[in-house]
Design a protein around this nucleic acid. Structure first.
Lengths: 173, 173
DNA sequence: TCACTCATGTAATTGGTTACATGATTAG
DNA sequence: CTAATCATGTAACCAATTACATGAGTGA
């Protein structure tokens, strides 16, 4: 895709993972190029303005897989999780399970922490910020349910690669 | 509270709204002070290290209410919504309803957009990033349900101030 | 005595947005 | 003919993190 294409594509995903500005997108694309992770092809399509179409190299694909597999820092924003979710879905089925499992553990821990936090607070004066706690717990519950459902599907639909993923999934975090 | 106290308090809410670094927190506190939104009181508690305890002034309280009431840019991150939720819950019951109503409209619009996006994409080649769409839609559904429930509670528990809020809530956005 | 928590701040770096700059094509 | 979309980039600026710097009390 070209830079412009990428921007348009991501605009549709803004709510989930945000959309980069051009000032961020184009330099990044150059960086990928000089790192050998992509190649360019200048397409001058007759009358229209020419566009630079980038393609991922094998090296780039490998880097993407490596990135998917690399554990994210636990308190990373939601969009980090979703970006990896998308990439893992596309390029690394074994990484996908590990990623979901990791997220599950994190959300469960946060849910527990929130519950404790709430209890320790509504012991004190007027139950303030109860709404925010409620909100967070509702989201956590939904997320856990979704993760369980997705993981269940992945495990059940499994062929040989699921076993491989499970065996390989026991890396130190 | 002191800067350190604030940091500790917010650490418990990291998952929901994040926690500022000291390099961000302390300068901000100074800023509030010079703007007259807070006052300080240096507390040297005998042997222990002295601490600077900040208090909100009337002006500060007014600024907070004004901030709650100011509409947020639609694509603001989740934590902006939650911060206002907490503050509105504490200091501005009329602003709270407007805030929830605003959020409801935004999430509903995003849900619809996501659904359209998904349909337009699974028409094409292999249904990629379906997981991310699923995830977003699940979250949106939960959020809408939660918002409806919260709004229902607020409207039903209403006394005179609810009517005032509803009358006042028709400001141009 | 060594490490850790409490407590407050400053400075450098960074990551990314906003704004700027350019130009061709298409639709009203 | 004008405005909007397509298309690519650069430069200035800003906000926030990271790392640094300091110091006193506390528990092992």
């Amino acid at each position: 895709m070209s830079g412009y294409d990428i921007k348009c594509y991501l605009k549709g995903l803004t709510w989930l993972i945000g959309s980069p500005s051009f000032g961020n997108l184009y330099p990044t694309l150059h960086g990928l190029l000089v790192d050998g992770l992509t190649t360019v092809e200048e397409c001058s399509r007759g009358s229209k303005a020419s566009r630079k179409v980038y393609s991922v190299t094998d090296e780039g694909r490998a880097a993407a897989e490596e990135w998917v597999r690399r554990p994210i820092r636990p308190n990373a924003p939601l969009r980090s999780f979703l970006m990896r979710l998308i990439l893992a879905d596309v390029c690394s089925p074994t990484g996908l399970i590990a990623h979901l499992e990791q997220r599950r553990a994190w959300v469960a821990s946060q849910q527990e922490a929130l519950e404790q936090e709430r209890e320790s607070w509504d012991g004190r004066d007027g139950s303030e910020q109860g709404l925010a706690y409620d909100y967070g717990l509702a989201l956590a519950q939904t997320e856990l349910a979704w993760l369980d459902e997705a993981l269940g599907r992945l495990y059940n639909s499994g062929g040989a690669w699921v076993l491989a993923a499970m065996a390989e999934g026991e890396q130190p975090s």
